[in-house]
Nucleic acid binder design. Sequence first.
DNA 1: CGACAAGTTGATGTTACTCAAAAGTGGTGG
DNA 2: CCACCACTTTTGAGTAACATCAACTTGTCG
Lengths: 238, 238
Amino acid sequence: MNRHLQSFPDAAAMGRLSRLASLDADELDALSSAGATRRKTAAHREIMAEGKRAAEPSMVLSGWACRSRIFRDGRRQILSLLLPGDLIGVCEQRNAMAPTAISALTEVVLCAVPRPLPHQHGLIDAYTRSGALDEFYLYRQVARLGRLNAYERIIDFILEIRDRLALVGMGTDDNFPLPLTQETFGDLLGLTSVHVNRTLQRLRRENLLDLRGGVARLKDVEHLMHVVEHRLPNIAVV
Amino acid sequence: MNRHLQSFPDAAAMGRLSRLASLDADELDALSSAGATRRKTAAHREIMAEGKRAAEPSMVLSGWACRSRIFRDGRRQILSLLLPGDLIGVCEQRNAMAPTAISALTEVVLCAVPRPLPHQHGLIDAYTRSGALDEFYLYRQVARLGRLNAYERIIDFILEIRDRLALVGMGTDDNFPLPLTQETFGDLLGLTSVHVNRTLQRLRRENLLDLRGGVARLKDVEHLMHVVEHRLPNIAVV
DNA sequence: CGACAAGTTGATGTTACTCAAAAGTGGTGG
DNA sequence: CCACCACTTTTGAGTAACATCAACTTGTCG
Protein backbone atom coordinates (compact mmCIF):
# COMPACT_ATOMS: atom_id res chain seq x y z
CA MET A 1 0.00 0.00 0.00
CA ASN A 2 1.00 3.54 -0.63
CA ARG A 3 3.19 5.53 1.78
CA HIS A 4 0.85 8.46 1.83
CA LEU A 5 -2.01 6.36 3.01
CA GLN A 6 -0.07 4.23 5.40
CA SER A 7 0.77 7.23 7.47
CA PHE A 8 -2.87 7.46 8.50
CA PRO A 9 -4.32 5.42 11.29
CA ASP A 10 -7.17 4.02 9.22
CA ALA A 11 -4.99 3.16 6.29
CA ALA A 12 -7.02 0.06 5.47
CA ALA A 13 -10.14 2.02 4.61
CA MET A 14 -8.22 4.67 2.69
CA GLY A 15 -6.39 1.97 0.77
CA ARG A 16 -9.59 0.65 -0.75
CA LEU A 17 -9.74 3.42 -3.32
CA SER A 18 -6.19 2.80 -4.45
CA ARG A 19 -7.11 -0.83 -5.01
CA LEU A 20 -10.00 0.21 -7.20
CA ALA A 21 -7.90 2.48 -9.43
CA SER A 22 -4.31 3.64 -9.41
CA LEU A 23 -4.03 7.06 -7.86
CA ASP A 24 -1.21 9.49 -8.48
CA ALA A 25 0.58 11.58 -5.86
CA ASP A 26 -1.73 14.51 -6.47
CA GLU A 27 -4.81 12.44 -5.88
CA LEU A 28 -3.37 10.81 -2.78
CA ASP A 29 -2.61 14.25 -1.41
CA ALA A 30 -6.17 15.34 -2.06
CA LEU A 31 -7.41 12.28 -0.21
CA SER A 32 -5.05 12.85 2.67
CA SER A 33 -5.97 16.45 3.24
CA ALA A 34 -9.71 15.89 2.90
CA GLY A 35 -9.34 12.86 5.18
CA ALA A 36 -8.26 15.06 8.05
CA THR A 37 -11.87 16.13 8.53
CA ARG A 38 -13.50 13.46 10.63
CA ARG A 39 -16.75 12.78 12.36
CA LYS A 40 -17.47 10.16 14.95
CA THR A 41 -20.94 8.70 15.52
CA ALA A 42 -21.88 6.47 18.45
CA ALA A 43 -23.50 3.10 17.85
CA HIS A 44 -27.25 3.24 17.15
CA ARG A 45 -27.13 6.93 16.28
CA GLU A 46 -28.27 8.31 12.98
CA ILE A 47 -25.50 9.50 10.66
CA MET A 48 -27.77 11.03 8.06
CA ALA A 49 -31.53 11.49 7.87
CA GLU A 50 -33.55 10.43 4.88
CA GLY A 51 -34.49 13.25 2.53
CA LYS A 52 -32.25 15.79 4.16
CA ARG A 53 -29.77 17.52 1.96
CA ALA A 54 -26.89 15.10 1.64
CA ALA A 55 -23.68 15.94 3.46
CA GLU A 56 -20.26 16.30 1.90
CA PRO A 57 -18.93 13.20 0.19
CA SER A 58 -17.37 10.99 2.82
CA MET A 59 -15.96 7.58 3.58
CA VAL A 60 -16.35 5.13 6.42
CA LEU A 61 -12.97 4.97 8.13
CA SER A 62 -13.93 2.51 10.81
CA GLY A 63 -17.02 0.84 12.20
CA TRP A 64 -20.16 -0.54 10.56
CA ALA A 65 -23.08 1.53 9.35
CA CYS A 66 -26.21 0.85 7.32
CA ARG A 67 -28.86 2.42 5.17
CA SER A 68 -32.24 1.46 6.53
CA ARG A 69 -35.94 2.06 6.28
CA ILE A 70 -38.21 1.92 9.29
CA PHE A 71 -41.97 1.48 9.05
CA ARG A 72 -44.69 2.90 11.26
CA ASP A 73 -45.21 -0.35 13.11
CA GLY A 74 -41.54 -0.69 13.93
CA ARG A 75 -40.52 -3.08 11.20
CA ARG A 76 -37.04 -2.21 10.04
CA GLN A 77 -35.28 -3.21 6.85
CA ILE A 78 -31.59 -2.66 6.48
CA LEU A 79 -31.12 -1.81 2.82
CA SER A 80 -27.36 -2.01 2.58
CA LEU A 81 -24.31 -2.16 4.79
CA LEU A 82 -21.51 0.39 4.84
CA LEU A 83 -18.13 -1.06 5.77
CA PRO A 84 -14.76 0.62 6.23
CA GLY A 85 -13.69 2.08 2.90
CA ASP A 86 -17.23 2.51 1.61
CA LEU A 87 -18.22 5.88 0.21
CA ILE A 88 -21.25 7.99 1.03
CA GLY A 89 -22.80 10.66 -1.15
CA VAL A 90 -20.04 10.71 -3.72
CA CYS A 91 -21.80 10.16 -7.00
CA GLU A 92 -24.74 12.34 -6.22
CA GLN A 93 -25.44 15.69 -7.75
CA ARG A 94 -25.03 18.90 -5.79
CA ASN A 95 -27.92 19.56 -3.45
CA ALA A 96 -29.07 15.99 -3.79
CA MET A 97 -31.27 14.52 -1.11
CA ALA A 98 -30.10 11.43 0.75
CA PRO A 99 -32.22 8.60 -0.65
CA THR A 100 -32.23 6.69 2.65
CA ALA A 101 -31.37 7.22 6.27
CA ILE A 102 -27.92 6.07 7.35
CA SER A 103 -27.19 4.97 10.88
CA ALA A 104 -24.32 3.57 12.85
CA LEU A 105 -24.45 -0.09 13.85
CA THR A 106 -21.23 0.18 15.84
CA GLU A 107 -19.27 3.31 16.63
CA VAL A 108 -18.43 4.78 13.24
CA VAL A 109 -15.79 7.25 12.12
CA LEU A 110 -16.32 9.02 8.82
CA CYS A 111 -13.87 11.23 7.00
CA ALA A 112 -14.41 13.64 4.15
CA VAL A 113 -13.23 12.71 0.67
CA PRO A 114 -12.44 15.21 -2.07
CA ARG A 115 -14.74 15.95 -4.97
CA PRO A 116 -12.52 14.97 -7.88
CA LEU A 117 -11.24 17.65 -10.22
CA PRO A 118 -11.78 16.99 -13.93
CA HIS A 119 -8.17 15.90 -14.48
CA GLN A 120 -8.06 13.47 -11.55
CA HIS A 121 -8.92 10.43 -13.60
CA GLY A 122 -7.70 7.96 -11.03
CA LEU A 123 -9.97 9.37 -8.38
CA ILE A 124 -12.90 9.54 -10.74
CA ASP A 125 -12.28 5.96 -11.74
CA ALA A 126 -12.03 4.79 -8.16
CA TYR A 127 -15.29 6.52 -7.23
CA THR A 128 -17.03 5.10 -10.26
CA ARG A 129 -15.84 1.61 -9.47
CA SER A 130 -16.87 1.99 -5.89
CA GLY A 131 -20.31 3.05 -7.09
CA ALA A 132 -20.48 0.07 -9.42
CA LEU A 133 -19.72 -2.23 -6.49
CA ASP A 134 -22.47 -0.61 -4.44
CA GLU A 135 -24.87 -1.20 -7.28
CA PHE A 136 -23.74 -4.78 -7.70
CA TYR A 137 -24.26 -5.56 -4.02
CA LEU A 138 -27.61 -3.84 -4.01
CA TYR A 139 -28.84 -6.05 -6.85
CA ARG A 140 -27.50 -8.98 -4.94
CA GLN A 141 -29.44 -7.95 -1.85
CA VAL A 142 -32.60 -7.91 -3.94
CA ALA A 143 -31.99 -11.42 -5.26
CA ARG A 144 -31.17 -12.62 -1.76
CA LEU A 145 -34.34 -11.28 -0.22
CA GLY A 146 -36.55 -12.25 -3.11
CA ARG A 147 -35.51 -15.78 -3.90
CA LEU A 148 -33.22 -17.25 -1.26
CA ASN A 149 -34.46 -18.95 1.89
CA ALA A 150 -33.09 -18.12 5.34
CA TYR A 151 -30.31 -20.68 5.13
CA GLU A 152 -29.14 -19.43 1.75
CA ARG A 153 -29.55 -15.78 2.67
CA ILE A 154 -27.20 -16.09 5.58
CA ILE A 155 -24.56 -17.94 3.58
CA ASP A 156 -24.79 -15.52 0.71
CA PHE A 157 -24.55 -12.54 3.01
CA ILE A 158 -21.55 -13.89 4.90
CA LEU A 159 -19.71 -14.51 1.66
CA GLU A 160 -20.45 -11.00 0.51
CA ILE A 161 -19.03 -9.53 3.68
CA ARG A 162 -15.96 -11.68 3.32
CA ASP A 163 -15.30 -10.32 -0.16
CA ARG A 164 -15.93 -6.75 0.83
CA LEU A 165 -13.72 -6.91 3.89
CA ALA A 166 -10.98 -8.53 1.83
CA LEU A 167 -10.89 -5.38 -0.28
CA VAL A 168 -9.84 -3.39 2.78
CA GLY A 169 -7.58 -6.10 4.12
CA MET A 170 -9.78 -6.95 7.09
CA GLY A 171 -9.83 -10.65 7.90
CA THR A 172 -8.68 -13.68 5.99
CA ASP A 173 -10.33 -16.13 3.61
CA ASP A 174 -12.14 -17.92 6.38
CA ASN A 175 -12.03 -15.64 9.38
CA PHE A 176 -13.20 -12.06 9.67
CA PRO A 177 -15.00 -9.65 12.00
CA LEU A 178 -18.78 -9.48 11.89
CA PRO A 179 -19.90 -7.32 14.82
CA LEU A 180 -23.65 -7.55 14.28
CA THR A 181 -26.31 -8.88 16.62
CA GLN A 182 -28.69 -11.56 15.42
CA GLU A 183 -31.40 -8.94 15.62
CA THR A 184 -29.49 -6.79 13.13
CA PHE A 185 -28.95 -9.83 10.96
CA GLY A 186 -32.67 -10.32 10.90
CA ASP A 187 -33.33 -6.74 9.83
CA LEU A 188 -30.74 -7.10 7.13
CA LEU A 189 -31.98 -10.39 5.74
CA GLY A 190 -35.70 -9.91 6.19
CA LEU A 191 -35.94 -12.49 8.99
CA THR A 192 -36.69 -12.52 12.69
CA SER A 193 -33.82 -12.83 15.13
CA VAL A 194 -35.28 -16.11 16.36
CA HIS A 195 -35.12 -17.63 12.93
CA VAL A 196 -31.64 -16.24 12.37
CA ASN A 197 -30.57 -17.90 15.59
CA ARG A 198 -31.93 -21.28 14.58
CA THR A 199 -30.41 -21.07 11.13
CA LEU A 200 -27.01 -20.13 12.55
CA GLN A 201 -27.23 -23.13 14.84
CA ARG A 202 -27.90 -25.36 11.89
CA LEU A 203 -24.88 -23.97 10.03
CA ARG A 204 -22.74 -24.59 13.10
CA ARG A 205 -24.09 -28.12 13.47
CA GLU A 206 -23.32 -28.81 9.82
CA ASN A 207 -19.83 -27.51 10.44
CA LEU A 208 -20.10 -24.98 7.64
CA LEU A 209 -19.67 -21.76 9.52
CA ASP A 210 -19.41 -20.52 13.05
CA LEU A 211 -20.61 -17.05 13.90
CA ARG A 212 -19.88 -16.09 17.46
CA GLY A 213 -18.55 -13.19 19.45
CA GLY A 214 -18.58 -10.86 16.49
CA VAL A 215 -16.31 -13.10 14.42
CA ALA A 216 -17.20 -15.30 11.46
CA ARG A 217 -15.28 -18.53 10.93
CA LEU A 218 -15.92 -20.34 7.67
CA LYS A 219 -15.32 -24.09 7.84
CA ASP A 220 -15.98 -25.05 4.24
CA VAL A 221 -15.75 -22.11 1.89
CA GLU A 222 -16.04 -24.24 -1.25
CA HIS A 223 -19.27 -25.78 -0.13
CA LEU A 224 -20.74 -22.50 1.06
CA MET A 225 -19.92 -20.88 -2.26
CA HIS A 226 -21.55 -23.71 -4.14
CA VAL A 227 -24.78 -23.56 -2.15
CA VAL A 228 -25.48 -19.99 -3.21
CA GLU A 229 -23.75 -20.01 -6.62
CA HIS A 230 -21.36 -17.40 -5.32
CA ARG A 231 -19.79 -15.06 -7.85
CA LEU A 232 -17.41 -12.17 -7.55
CA PRO A 233 -18.40 -8.79 -8.93
CA ASN A 234 -17.13 -8.11 -12.43
CA ILE A 235 -15.15 -5.13 -11.29
CA ALA A 236 -11.47 -5.17 -12.04
CA VAL A 237 -9.24 -4.54 -9.04
CA VAL A 238 -5.83 -2.99 -9.58
CA MET B 1 -43.04 19.16 -24.19
CA ASN B 2 -40.33 20.33 -26.48
CA ARG B 3 -40.78 20.56 -30.26
CA HIS B 4 -37.61 18.67 -30.93
CA LEU B 5 -38.78 15.68 -29.00
CA GLN B 6 -42.36 15.78 -30.12
CA SER B 7 -41.33 15.16 -33.65
CA PHE B 8 -40.31 11.65 -32.68
CA PRO B 9 -42.74 8.79 -32.45
CA ASP B 10 -41.73 7.79 -28.92
CA ALA B 11 -41.81 11.31 -27.64
CA ALA B 12 -43.08 10.23 -24.23
CA ALA B 13 -39.95 8.29 -23.37
CA MET B 14 -37.64 10.97 -24.77
CA GLY B 15 -39.51 13.61 -22.81
CA ARG B 16 -38.61 12.01 -19.50
CA LEU B 17 -35.13 13.48 -19.54
CA SER B 18 -36.39 16.97 -20.17
CA ARG B 19 -38.63 16.61 -17.15
CA LEU B 20 -35.66 15.67 -15.03
CA ALA B 21 -33.58 18.68 -16.07
CA SER B 22 -34.00 21.50 -18.54
CA LEU B 23 -32.17 20.75 -21.73
CA ASP B 24 -30.99 23.35 -24.21
CA ALA B 25 -31.29 23.12 -27.99
CA ASP B 26 -27.81 21.68 -28.29
CA GLU B 27 -28.60 18.88 -25.88
CA LEU B 28 -31.93 18.12 -27.51
CA ASP B 29 -30.18 17.87 -30.85
CA ALA B 30 -27.66 15.46 -29.39
CA LEU B 31 -30.51 13.34 -28.03
CA SER B 32 -32.35 13.44 -31.33
CA SER B 33 -29.45 12.33 -33.44
CA ALA B 34 -28.32 9.60 -31.08
CA GLY B 35 -31.95 8.50 -30.81
CA ALA B 36 -32.04 7.59 -34.46
CA THR B 37 -30.08 4.44 -33.67
CA ARG B 38 -32.60 1.89 -32.52
CA ARG B 39 -32.77 -1.72 -31.60
CA LYS B 40 -35.83 -3.89 -31.24
CA THR B 41 -35.94 -6.96 -29.01
CA ALA B 42 -38.76 -9.49 -28.98
CA ALA B 43 -40.53 -10.38 -25.75
CA HIS B 44 -38.67 -12.90 -23.58
CA ARG B 45 -35.39 -12.31 -25.38
CA GLU B 46 -32.24 -11.19 -23.64
CA ILE B 47 -31.22 -7.58 -24.28
CA MET B 48 -27.90 -7.78 -22.51
CA ALA B 49 -26.03 -10.61 -20.85
CA GLU B 50 -24.64 -10.37 -17.35
CA GLY B 51 -20.92 -9.70 -17.18
CA LYS B 52 -20.54 -8.93 -20.85
CA ARG B 53 -19.03 -5.62 -21.74
CA ALA B 54 -21.86 -3.15 -21.44
CA ALA B 55 -23.32 -1.74 -24.66
CA GLU B 56 -23.58 1.91 -25.59
CA PRO B 57 -25.67 4.04 -23.26
CA SER B 58 -29.28 3.64 -24.28
CA MET B 59 -32.87 4.30 -23.34
CA VAL B 60 -36.04 2.27 -23.40
CA LEU B 61 -38.28 3.90 -26.01
CA SER B 62 -41.17 1.50 -25.69
CA GLY B 63 -41.98 -1.79 -24.00
CA TRP B 64 -41.10 -3.25 -20.62
CA ALA B 65 -37.77 -4.83 -19.73
CA CYS B 66 -36.14 -6.04 -16.55
CA ARG B 67 -32.86 -6.79 -14.88
CA SER B 68 -32.99 -10.31 -13.50
CA ARG B 69 -31.00 -13.06 -11.92
CA ILE B 70 -31.70 -16.71 -12.59
CA PHE B 71 -30.52 -19.52 -10.35
CA ARG B 72 -29.42 -23.03 -11.27
CA ASP B 73 -32.69 -24.58 -10.16
CA GLY B 74 -34.74 -22.19 -12.27
CA ARG B 75 -35.70 -19.70 -9.58
CA ARG B 76 -35.77 -16.24 -11.08
CA GLN B 77 -35.68 -12.90 -9.35
CA ILE B 78 -36.46 -9.75 -11.25
CA LEU B 79 -34.18 -7.14 -9.72
CA SER B 80 -35.64 -4.03 -11.27
CA LEU B 81 -37.98 -2.99 -14.04
CA LEU B 82 -37.07 -0.82 -17.00
CA LEU B 83 -39.92 1.28 -18.33
CA PRO B 84 -40.09 3.66 -21.28
CA GLY B 85 -37.72 6.54 -20.65
CA ASP B 86 -35.43 4.54 -18.38
CA LEU B 87 -31.72 4.61 -19.12
CA ILE B 88 -29.31 1.69 -19.44
CA GLY B 89 -25.56 1.80 -18.98
CA VAL B 90 -25.32 5.56 -18.78
CA CYS B 91 -23.49 6.21 -15.55
CA GLU B 92 -21.04 3.39 -15.92
CA GLN B 93 -17.39 3.77 -16.69
CA ARG B 94 -15.97 2.88 -20.08
CA ASN B 95 -15.52 -0.85 -20.51
CA ALA B 96 -17.73 -1.52 -17.54
CA MET B 97 -19.36 -4.90 -17.26
CA ALA B 98 -23.11 -5.14 -17.07
CA PRO B 99 -23.89 -5.91 -13.44
CA THR B 100 -26.99 -7.94 -14.31
CA ALA B 101 -28.67 -9.49 -17.30
CA ILE B 102 -31.39 -7.43 -18.93
CA SER B 103 -34.25 -9.01 -20.80
CA ALA B 104 -37.41 -7.95 -22.55
CA LEU B 105 -40.73 -8.66 -20.85
CA THR B 106 -42.70 -7.35 -23.81
CA GLU B 107 -41.37 -6.31 -27.17
CA VAL B 108 -38.87 -3.57 -26.41
CA VAL B 109 -37.37 -0.81 -28.51
CA LEU B 110 -34.15 0.78 -27.31
CA CYS B 111 -32.46 3.83 -28.74
CA ALA B 112 -28.96 5.14 -28.18
CA VAL B 113 -28.43 8.22 -26.03
CA PRO B 114 -25.41 10.50 -26.25
CA ARG B 115 -22.56 10.48 -23.77
CA PRO B 116 -22.74 14.03 -22.46
CA LEU B 117 -19.95 16.44 -23.30
CA PRO B 118 -18.47 18.31 -20.34
CA HIS B 119 -20.40 21.48 -21.06
CA GLN B 120 -23.79 19.80 -21.45
CA HIS B 121 -24.86 20.38 -17.89
CA GLY B 122 -28.53 19.81 -18.54
CA LEU B 123 -27.86 16.39 -19.97
CA ILE B 124 -25.47 15.51 -17.18
CA ASP B 125 -28.03 16.63 -14.66
CA ALA B 126 -30.82 14.64 -16.27
CA TYR B 127 -28.70 11.49 -16.33
CA THR B 128 -27.68 11.99 -12.74
CA ARG B 129 -31.27 12.46 -11.64
CA SER B 130 -32.32 9.43 -13.60
CA GLY B 131 -29.61 7.46 -11.85
CA ALA B 132 -30.75 8.77 -8.49
CA LEU B 133 -34.27 7.59 -9.25
CA ASP B 134 -32.97 4.15 -10.18
CA GLU B 135 -31.16 4.00 -6.88
CA PHE B 136 -34.20 5.17 -4.96
CA TYR B 137 -36.40 2.51 -6.52
CA LEU B 138 -33.78 -0.15 -5.96
CA TYR B 139 -33.69 0.62 -2.24
CA ARG B 140 -37.43 0.51 -2.27
CA GLN B 141 -37.39 -2.91 -3.88
CA VAL B 142 -35.15 -4.12 -1.07
CA ALA B 143 -37.49 -2.82 1.62
CA ARG B 144 -40.46 -4.32 -0.20
CA LEU B 145 -38.96 -7.78 -0.44
CA GLY B 146 -37.47 -7.72 3.02
CA ARG B 147 -40.26 -6.42 5.18
CA LEU B 148 -43.58 -6.24 3.34
CA ASN B 149 -45.97 -9.17 3.01
CA ALA B 150 -47.51 -10.23 -0.28
CA TYR B 151 -50.48 -7.90 0.07
CA GLU B 152 -48.30 -4.88 0.81
CA ARG B 153 -45.71 -5.78 -1.79
CA ILE B 154 -48.28 -5.72 -4.54
CA ILE B 155 -49.75 -2.41 -3.45
CA ASP B 156 -46.35 -0.81 -3.04
CA PHE B 157 -45.22 -2.05 -6.41
CA ILE B 158 -48.33 -0.86 -8.21
CA LEU B 159 -47.96 2.60 -6.72
CA GLU B 160 -44.33 2.72 -7.79
CA ILE B 161 -45.25 1.88 -11.37
CA ARG B 162 -47.92 4.54 -11.31
CA ASP B 163 -45.42 7.20 -10.32
CA ARG B 164 -42.85 6.08 -12.82
CA LEU B 165 -45.31 5.95 -15.69
CA ALA B 166 -46.61 9.38 -14.75
CA LEU B 167 -43.12 10.74 -15.43
CA VAL B 168 -43.46 9.67 -19.06
CA GLY B 169 -47.09 10.65 -19.30
CA MET B 170 -48.39 7.11 -19.56
CA GLY B 171 -51.65 6.56 -17.75
CA THR B 172 -53.55 8.65 -15.24
CA ASP B 173 -53.71 8.81 -11.46
CA ASP B 174 -55.79 5.68 -11.21
CA ASN B 175 -55.48 3.93 -14.52
CA PHE B 176 -52.38 2.81 -16.35
CA PRO B 177 -50.93 -0.04 -18.40
CA LEU B 178 -49.31 -2.95 -16.61
CA PRO B 179 -48.61 -5.62 -19.21
CA LEU B 180 -47.10 -8.25 -16.92
CA THR B 181 -48.28 -11.78 -16.27
CA GLN B 182 -48.92 -12.95 -12.73
CA GLU B 183 -45.92 -15.20 -13.16
CA THR B 184 -43.74 -12.16 -13.86
CA PHE B 185 -45.29 -10.41 -10.89
CA GLY B 186 -44.22 -13.31 -8.75
CA ASP B 187 -40.65 -13.18 -9.97
CA LEU B 188 -40.60 -9.48 -9.32
CA LEU B 189 -42.05 -9.60 -5.83
CA GLY B 190 -40.48 -12.82 -4.62
CA LEU B 191 -43.77 -14.72 -4.64
CA THR B 192 -45.33 -17.59 -6.56
CA SER B 193 -47.82 -16.82 -9.28
CA VAL B 194 -50.46 -18.72 -7.32
CA HIS B 195 -50.03 -16.49 -4.33
CA VAL B 196 -50.01 -13.39 -6.53
CA ASN B 197 -53.27 -14.54 -8.03
CA ARG B 198 -54.93 -14.98 -4.65
CA THR B 199 -53.68 -11.68 -3.38
CA LEU B 200 -54.91 -9.85 -6.48
CA GLN B 201 -58.30 -11.44 -5.93
CA ARG B 202 -58.35 -10.15 -2.40
CA LEU B 203 -57.51 -6.63 -3.58
CA ARG B 204 -60.31 -6.84 -6.13
CA ARG B 205 -62.75 -8.13 -3.52
CA GLU B 206 -61.80 -5.29 -1.21
CA ASN B 207 -62.40 -2.91 -4.09
CA LEU B 208 -58.97 -1.40 -3.78
CA LEU B 209 -57.49 -2.21 -7.14
CA ASP B 210 -58.33 -4.17 -10.21
CA LEU B 211 -55.58 -5.63 -12.31
CA ARG B 212 -56.80 -7.24 -15.47
CA GLY B 213 -55.99 -7.41 -19.12
CA GLY B 214 -52.72 -5.60 -18.71
CA VAL B 215 -54.32 -2.55 -17.14
CA ALA B 216 -54.29 -1.44 -13.51
CA ARG B 217 -57.31 0.41 -12.14
CA LEU B 218 -56.91 1.90 -8.69
CA LYS B 219 -60.14 2.27 -6.77
CA ASP B 220 -58.91 3.95 -3.62
CA VAL B 221 -55.54 5.59 -4.09
CA GLU B 222 -55.57 7.29 -0.68
CA HIS B 223 -56.11 4.05 1.14
CA LEU B 224 -53.55 2.16 -0.92
CA MET B 225 -50.97 4.84 -0.26
CA HIS B 226 -51.65 4.72 3.44
CA VAL B 227 -51.29 0.95 3.68
CA VAL B 228 -47.70 1.05 2.47
CA GLU B 229 -46.70 4.52 3.74
CA HIS B 230 -46.18 5.60 0.17
CA ARG B 231 -43.68 8.38 -0.45
CA LEU B 232 -42.46 10.07 -3.57
CA PRO B 233 -38.76 10.14 -4.32
CA ASN B 234 -37.00 13.30 -3.18
CA ILE B 235 -35.95 14.14 -6.69
CA ALA B 236 -36.97 17.48 -8.01
CA VAL B 237 -38.78 17.39 -11.32
CA VAL B 238 -38.57 20.36 -13.64
C1' DC C 1 -61.30 -25.78 -34.16
C1' DG C 2 -57.09 -26.86 -31.73
C1' DA C 3 -53.08 -25.46 -29.27
C1' DC C 4 -50.80 -22.81 -25.95
C1' DA C 5 -50.31 -19.43 -22.61
C1' DA C 6 -52.44 -17.29 -18.69
C1' DG C 7 -55.46 -17.33 -14.95
C1' DT C 8 -57.98 -19.89 -11.25
C1' DT C 9 -59.03 -23.33 -7.71
C1' DG C 10 -58.32 -26.90 -4.06
C1' DA C 11 -55.68 -29.71 -0.97
C1' DT C 12 -51.62 -30.17 1.47
C1' DG C 13 -46.82 -29.11 3.13
C1' DT C 14 -43.12 -26.13 4.81
C1' DT C 15 -40.90 -22.13 6.11
C1' DA C 16 -40.69 -18.65 8.91
C1' DC C 17 -43.29 -15.76 12.42
C1' DT C 18 -45.20 -14.90 17.12
C1' DC C 19 -45.16 -14.99 21.87
C1' DA C 20 -43.04 -16.05 25.99
C1' DA C 21 -39.56 -17.22 28.96
C1' DA C 22 -34.96 -18.97 30.36
C1' DA C 23 -30.08 -18.79 30.10
C1' DG C 24 -25.90 -16.56 28.92
C1' DT C 25 -22.90 -12.19 28.47
C1' DG C 26 -20.73 -8.02 29.57
C1' DG C 27 -20.40 -3.73 31.85
C1' DT C 28 -20.99 -0.72 36.04
C1' DG C 29 -20.98 0.74 40.55
C1' DG C 30 -20.92 -0.22 45.33
C1' DC D 1 -15.31 -9.13 44.05
C1' DC D 2 -19.95 -9.38 43.71
C1' DA D 3 -24.66 -7.74 42.63
C1' DC D 4 -27.18 -5.83 39.39
C1' DC D 5 -28.65 -4.33 35.02
C1' DA D 6 -29.36 -4.33 30.16
C1' DC D 7 -28.70 -6.69 26.20
C1' DT D 8 -28.19 -10.80 23.48
C1' DT D 9 -28.75 -15.57 22.63
C1' DT D 10 -31.29 -19.67 23.12
C1' DT D 11 -35.34 -22.71 23.70
C1' DG D 12 -40.23 -24.30 23.23
C1' DA D 13 -44.96 -24.36 21.58
C1' DG D 14 -48.36 -22.81 18.61
C1' DT D 15 -49.64 -20.27 14.28
C1' DA D 16 -49.79 -17.76 9.93
C1' DA D 17 -48.06 -16.89 5.49
C1' DC D 18 -46.66 -18.59 1.57
C1' DA D 19 -45.12 -22.63 -1.36
C1' DT D 20 -46.06 -26.84 -3.85
C1' DC D 21 -48.52 -29.83 -6.77
C1' DA D 22 -52.02 -30.83 -9.80
C1' DA D 23 -55.97 -30.08 -12.19
C1' DC D 24 -59.27 -27.29 -14.39
C1' DT D 25 -60.90 -22.97 -16.87
C1' DT D 26 -60.52 -19.09 -19.71
C1' DG D 27 -58.80 -16.45 -23.35
C1' DT D 28 -56.18 -15.73 -27.64
C1' DC D 29 -54.51 -16.50 -31.97
C1' DG D 30 -53.41 -18.96 -36.10
